[in-house]
Simulated scan of single mutants.
Amino acid sequence: MNFFEKITGRDMTKEMKAFEERVKVLPAEYQTAWKEMNNHLWIHGDFTGRNLMPILDSALELLEVTSADGQSVEEVLGDDIKGFCAALVGDEGAKTYRDKWRDQLNKNVARKLGGLK
């Protein structure tokens, strides 16, 4: 990856297109699960989302392998895809980017108010 691709995010666009091509060959229930997993995983991303690329790749590989084995989505992911995604990125209490920004804002305000005294 060169500097230009990293700055523009072109490398991630290529990788996401490759993921989507892999998803197209999965059964319909797996494609639906992938879309739902994407929705739940992206909120745990950093500013660029690059931290999620290995996680997305592993999740897609799990779906590919289990669909080839003939397992259903419910057998693999359970009935709580949101919880599965939270566990995948860390733990049940994994912070979203909104939580991280809120914490940072609160720290900045507290520091400014503490400095006024």
Rank of each mutant, 00 (worst) to 15 (best):
G90C: 12
G45F: 03
G114E: 07
M37T: 06
N106R: 10
W34F: 14
G114L: 02
G70F: 10
K17C: 03
G93K: 14
H40N: 08
N38P: 01
E36I: 12
E5Q: 13
G114M: 04
K82H: 12
D103E: 15
V73S: 01
K100R: 15
Q104A: 07
N51L: 11
E92A: 15
F3E: 09
T48E: 04
K6M: 10
Q104R: 03
G90F: 10
Y30G: 06
K100S: 10
M1E: 01
L60P: 11
Q71N: 12
Y30H: 07
F19G: 00
G93P: 02
D79I: 14
G70T: 04
G9L: 02
L116N: 07
G70S: 05
A33W: 13
L116Q: 08
F4A: 07
F84P: 08
L88V: 05
D46T: 10
D11W: 01
N38Q: 12
D99Y: 02
A87K: 15
R22S: 14
L113S: 01
L56C: 12
L88G: 03
Q31V: 09
L52E: 04
L105H: 05
K100L: 15
Q31T: 04
S67A: 15
N2T: 05
K17V: 02
F47H: 08
V23S: 04
G70E: 08
L77F: 14
V65F: 09
E61H: 15
M16T: 03
M12K: 03
K17I: 00
A94S: 10
L62H: 08
E20A: 06
L88W: 13
R102Y: 13
E15M: 11
G114S: 11
A87C: 13
W34L: 06
N38A: 08
A86M: 07
A18N: 09
A68G: 03
S58C: 08
D80T: 10
D91K: 04
K100M: 15
G114Q: 05
G115H: 10
K24A: 15
K107H: 04
K112A: 06
G45M: 00
L113T: 04
A59E: 13
T13A: 04
V65P: 05
D80H: 10
N2K: 12
M16S: 06
T66G: 00
L116A: 08
V76W: 06
T48Y: 03
L113R: 10
P54S: 01
D80W: 12
V73Q: 00
K82M: 04
V25Q: 07
A86H: 11
V65D: 09
A33E: 10
A33T: 08
E36Y: 07
E64C: 11
T13W: 00
L60T: 04
M16V: 10
W101R: 14
V76S: 09
A86D: 14
V73D: 00
V89E: 11
F47V: 13
